[in-house]
């Protein structure tokens, strides 16, 4: 296994939803590389340049490790999203929460007049 970061290509960000056009073979994905910059954008995660370089190599290795599961035949297998496949339990429509804004905002980095504040957003 090499630690050389592969050449990254842009991930196709289609308009919405999970495209059914899953990429071809795992080897191709590895070869095509992982666009760490794009993932960082999606995850809103700043990385120093050297961290980004290391992340590229690490992700390459992690994804290669993960791709071992591609060899397992899973045709006709239902995905298991939850260990106990029980249905949702519903809550009666009643207001029981008492909101203590002061307590909640005592841990806020920036709040004023009951509002949370963030740098001005231009829509």
């Amino acid at each position: 296994m090499t630690n050389e970061p592969p050449v990254s290509t842009k991930i196709d960000a289609a308009d919405s939803g999970q495209a059914s056009d899953a990429p071809d073979a795992p080897q191709d994905r590895i070869k095509d590389g992982i666009n760490v910059a794009h993932l960082q954008r999606l995850a809103r995660l700043a990385l120093e340049p050297d961290q980004a370089q290391a992340a590229q190599a690490d992700l390459h290795n992690i994804v290669a490790m993960i791709d071992a599961m591609q060899a397992v035949p899973t045709d006709g297998v239902e995905p298991l999203t939850h260990p106990l496949e029980t249905p949702a339990r519903l809550r009666p429509d009643r207001v029981t929460e008492v909101v203590d804004r002061e307590a909640f905002q005592s841990v806020a980095p920036a709040a004023d007049a009951g509002f949370y504040l963030v740098p001005k957003v231009i829509e």
């Binding site: 999970q18 059914s20 899953a22 990429p23 994905r29 992982i34 993932l39 999606l42 994804v63 995905p79």
Partner: peptide, 25 residues
């Protein structure tokens, strides 16, 4: 970053759904 990759458009079926199927097995 790994999880973001696995859920990304175009990778979801190959990773997340595949992993859930393996989970059932």
């Amino acid at each position: 970053l790994t999880g973001t990759y696995a859920l990304s458009v175009g990778y979801y079926d190959a990773y997340y759904v595949k992993a859930q199927k393996v989970r059932r097995l």
